[in-house]
Design a protein around this nucleic acid. Structure first.
Lengths: 242, 242
DNA sequence: GGGGATTTGTCCGTATGTATC
DNA sequence: CGATACATACGGACAAATCCC
């Protein structure tokens, strides 16, 4: 009786439609990450759906990091990061594959192919300033290695710094996502423990040296050696289980 | 300073909690993709939350393709595909970057690096049977090219078939995701129109020929040429705008 | 520091559409 | 075809969190 009498909106608007309309709203309004979105009340009025439907659509968009919801404050355009990829690959590694080792191997192969190909491009475009930044990271690696401590964070920083000169924002985010998944999955088995930090530090030193000499082939070899070391850890873990 | 509501200890204890408990349920029960999940009523009782909270969590997991909801039937474990990555990258390309051309360039560079690196591995492991399958695809490309018709689907099939021998399930899914994003974003500008199908067919023929000869370097060159052709289309599109 | 306003989080109850058997 | 189980959607209400004055 009350409410809206079938006002021409009798289309089969499934929940996904609301999602798309919110995304379209962001596109139409040219909203940048961090920009505020209409409140749930406003959305439910402008879209002509109930608040529950709005919230479900917003929750789905939040899972994709397309919107960011702050309790008691408001809803904002998200960063569209690769967090969904991390969640998806992590879940996939823990369920789909026969064992985690296979999933980790696949991720590692993609990382290796990517970084081997990227290092050859970096070798041609790297600046002295970036070489200096890498030098500092490697130096700190060698300090930690001398103290017998592993340095996963420095490792991550090294690779992230490495590909900055490419001017490709997608590359570091992709690699960070793979790195994150690998360590989250391998971590529960203890496969990400670096048994010999000084060897790992040496691998990075080799990469940097080759980079300084602009020796593409040598840089690729050094990167390949680095990944061979990572694989060895994981493989040795699988053998231990058997 | 009073108690700082730092987010270090505050890790989404509200909404995300239900999501994680459902994910944990899947992991604990060792549920495979396609396996049925408890109904919303059962979940709301077993988790001690309302139906609304259950539905919002399920919607978020659906967006990540971790669960699959069939209207009027039930909820099932999802395929954990890379659909979220497609949605995220598409949205990112349409909003974050200055113009779509930059986003497309980044995706293209990643694809190029990946495929150039992968082709060298394929060249060593490809079997005669797979070469025959590729031959058939290329032959159909040449038919279409002779008729002046573009063949985006055949192109996709070629690259998908190419990397099957690696035994890496992640690779084709990643490439398919990038391919999907590229064509969805480029499609709205018409940049994905292939102006010369016979040239594209020739590129793939070159790749196959190099693969037959197990010539790694030549295969990489042919793959690079292929991507140079794709870039040319997109670049020419951007120049036309200016 | 306090209080009120705004906004999201959660819950309940009910009605409706949909797919399976 | 009917019966049943299930997801979808709506409206209202209150709690919790945040911000601003």
């Amino acid at each position: 009786m009350r409410g809206m009498p079938e006002s021409a909106s009798n289309k089969r608007r499934t929940g996904g439609q609301v999602q798309r309309r919110v995304m379209q709203l962001i596109l139409d309004e040219r909203l940048r990450p961090g920009a505020p979105l209409p409140t749930e009340t406003e959305l439910m009025e402008s879209l002509g759906v109930s608040r529950n439907s709005v919230r479900e659509a917003l929750k789905a968009l939040q899972a994709l990091d397309i919107v960011e919801i702050r309790h008691g404050y408001g809803t904002y355009v998200g960063q569209a990061s690769l967090t969904p990829l991390v969640d998806g690959l992590t879940f996939r590694a823990l369920t789909q594959l026969e064992d985690e080792a296979q999933a980790l191997g696949e991720i590692l192969q993609v990382r290796e192919v990517l970084e081997e190909g990227l290092i050859s491009r970096v070798a041609q475009s790297v600046t002295d300033q970036e070489l200096a930044a890498l030098e500092e990271v490697v130096a700190r690696m060698e300090e930690e290695a001398h103290a017998g401590r592993p340095f996963p964070q420095l490792d991550r920083t090294f690779h992230e710094t490495l590909y900055r000169s490419l001017g490709n924002e997608l590359v570091p985010q992709l690699l960070a996502a793979f790195w994150h998944v690998f360590h989250r999955v391998a971590g529960v088995r203890g496969w990400d423990q670096d048994p010999s930090p000084h060897v790992t530090a040496r691998r990075h030193r080799d990469i940097l040296t080759a980079l300084r000499a602009r020796d593409v082939a040598q840089a690729q070899r050094a990167m390949a050696d680095h990944f061979r070391g990572i694989e060895a850890r994981a493989w040795q873990g699988t053998l231990g289980v058997k």
